[in-house]
Amino acid sequence: STVAPPALPPYFIKGSIIQLADGELKRVEDLKTEDFIQSAEISSELKIDSSTVERIEGSHTSPNFAVVQFSVGEHRAQVSVEVLVEYPFFVFGQGWSSCCPDRTTQLLELPCTKLSVGDVCISLTLKNLK
């Protein structure tokens, strides 16, 4: 039996308008590492963590999915996420990357490189609230 893959969020489609924390508007394909860093600095609740890709493997449930294992933050906590193979992550200093960049470009028109073990992705955690 075939199951229709879930739709990707609309904001990854090329041309989508993204609002940074200072109010500036940019297209998703024009975002730079600094945009995320500066937005997180302004944010009172969110902070950026470095998440290093430790492993990428196919999902057991569907060929449309991959399981990406990250080492998150200075404590290197292990976090695994199951995502569509075309789901883009933002790699520090590099830009959008996915497990299957051809599919990302085909479906979203978002310029994308191949996500690889050792890549350092931008992720978010909560700032310590007191």
Partner: peptide, 19 residues
Amino acid sequence: VPVFPWHSLVPFLAPTQSD
């Protein structure tokens, strides 16, 4: 035209506190 907040594009990876 919809406008999306920057943080919706970033995965929220919250490590569980082990200490």
